[in-house]
Design a protein around this nucleic acid. Structure first.
Lengths: 333, 333
DNA sequence: TTGAAAGCGCTACCAT
DNA sequence: ATGGTAGCGCTTTCAA
């Protein structure tokens, strides 16, 4: 017991210094009117004994824990880590800690996760909703990161715009015959991305949409019919397209270009490295935390919910359409 | 203000019921000697008004927050999510929440993250150390997840054993000429994995170790010299080996087998799917949380630190050595 | 069986 | 400029 280094509190510091706890508190917080000499005395003493305020005591008094909850549908989902990192960094800047909760992909799990977090005393909650399910009404501020819905506290990546810039980038490279690849036609995110692609291609190029729950289309055959570019809704799918193509002897990007989505870590770990559409997780996190912070402090004007544009990173998996290819654009004209 | 649903506390429940707070507390916690009728009365009332105890109040009184800190070197590291999920699940089972902190890959960041967590009042901390750097002494129980070191509160995946089973699996498939692939010869994890592989192969098969910080070995040339199997230290590296091989016209697994490590999500997303060595994150998490829980409650006997064996998953990227191949084992004999 | 009261560590109000 | 004190919500001891 004795070897356990005792943590000092304000009371003990006050006693040792022969002053009151109120003065210690005031001196430490820079509040109140305390003489410079006492401030110096107290702060140096506090430093010396390694004092830091008790989170519980402060939370009880102020009614704030300075902790935000983060509900994620599935931690093993590859897009989560980048997001969590952004949120953690931004929260840290604002003095908040992040308590994570896994909703295990179910609506019930999501609700129970939210309840859990509230009971743990978080000041606000960020939810990455599972398939855009409606939120449960809660007693603390909540912000949602998802595709735009009807709720007004949602911040979302602009997946439609993301799909558009993916398509335009390949149009710029001369491609005029596309294969659009998704793997979950129920996912609003994927639907939005595909929709954006279609909007950008409509009337300018040929395209075919292909949802592949399990079977993968025969890329060689597609290529024979003139396809020179594949737009996918995820890096994982893009990777699969690339490996599938190369196995069949189709060189990427010389004979076929492939575009991914999300800029997962694997995008730069594979060869060819993947061109991809990257969500601005920093900005998303910033807005989510800013919204919560404002709501927590009961600011009158809350930041507007909004869409955050995505950007593009061109790497090795995309290239100009091969002019000498028998399947190139020229032939279609 | 008025529309904000007021959260009830014990005092209010006590007043409404015309009894004392002490009785409410006792009834709710099943402690003390309270009549069954009062218990029923209080619990039903609590349920009815949606009462839940204030985390801050309880923490202040008990000195425990029921929150564990988790320090990770880099959230975007692909092995982290599975780990975090395991820890979160296990902690949840034991009534703990998880507060995450990113050490941003530096020793200084790690120390500051630990300090932060302590200030937030966590009861214990799990650290995934950056390159096995020594821990800073702390005032709360700490458990480390890493390769075995000298510290006695470390739980680690048995990377050496993992390397061994990777090698043995391919020996069983008839392979006798290996290429061992790492990409960071400073990493203790990678060194252990390679060491395990070498131990299993020594005296039984030929092998060559190759550290590839940037340049990738010419697999076709290696294959010409008889190599039929590649053992890597990560799925990412395995994937790169597979794509490299297939680009060069070497079929996987028909002509060359490739083994990964970690069972990242991408392992099943690519073709061929990757055979890999998978750490038992569930067991690791269980032991870490169990250790901390025991330490927090000042149990006399603490669970022993220990190594957790890894297991193997055989998928499509490995196969029997081709008997007809001119480079197969027979030729070496 | 029940209740009164102390006190965990902190902040803020009000006196001095 | 400084200090006394109340009280945040809870648990626990002790008294009734």
């Amino acid at each position: 017991m004795k070897n356990q280094k005792q943590i000092k509190n304000q009371k003990q510091i006050a006693r040792e210094l022969g002053i009151s706890v109120a003065t210690v508190s005031n001196a430490l917080r820079g509040k109140g009117r305390v003489s410079a000499s006492v401030i110096k005395l107290v702060t140096s003493r506090a430093e010396q004994v390694g004092y830091f305020p008790s989170a519980a005591g402060r939370a009880l008094k102020t009614g704030r824990s300075n902790i935000l909850g983060l509900v994620v549908p599935d931690i093993t989902n590859a897009v989560f880590p980048k997001f969590a990192q952004g949120v953690e960094a931004e929260a840290d800047k604002c003095g908040y800690g992040i308590l994570i909760a896994d909703s295990r992909g179910t609506q019930a799990g999501q609700n129970s996760a939210i309840r859990q977090l509230i009971q743990r005393g978080v000041d606000g909650i960020i939810v990455l909703p599972q398939r855009c399910t409606a939120p449960e009404v809660t007693s603390v501020p909540c912000a949602f990161a998802s595709t735009p819905g009807d709720i007004n506290n949602t911040v979302a990546a602009n997946h439609i715009q993301g799909g558009q810039i993916a398509a335009r980038a390949l149009l710029d490279l001369g491609h005029r015959n596309f294969l659009l690849l998704g793997n979950d036609s129920e996912s609003q995110v994927q639907k939005d991305r595909i929709q954006g692609m279609m909007e950008a291609l409509e009337g300018i190029a040929q395209f075919e949409v292909c949802w592949t729950p399990d079977v993968f289309p025969d890329l060689v055959e597609k290529n024979k019919t003139g396809v020179t570019a594949i737009l996918t809704v995820s890096d994982l799918l893009a990777l699969r397209a690339v490996t599938q193509a190369e196995r069949a002897g189709l060189k990427c990007p010389q004979e076929i270009s492939v575009m991914g989505f999300d800029d997962l870590p694997l995008a730069t770990a594979v060869r060819p490295t993947l061109s991809t559409i990257v969500p601005n997780t920093t900005e998303l996190s910033k807005r989510l935390v800013a919204y919560l912070s404002a709501a927590i402090h009961r600011d009158v004007i809350l930041p507007k919910p909004s869409l955050v544009d995505m950007s593009i990173i061109l790497r090795e998996s995309t290239g100009p359409v091969a002019t000498h290819s028998p399947h190139s654009t020229r032939r279609l004209k």
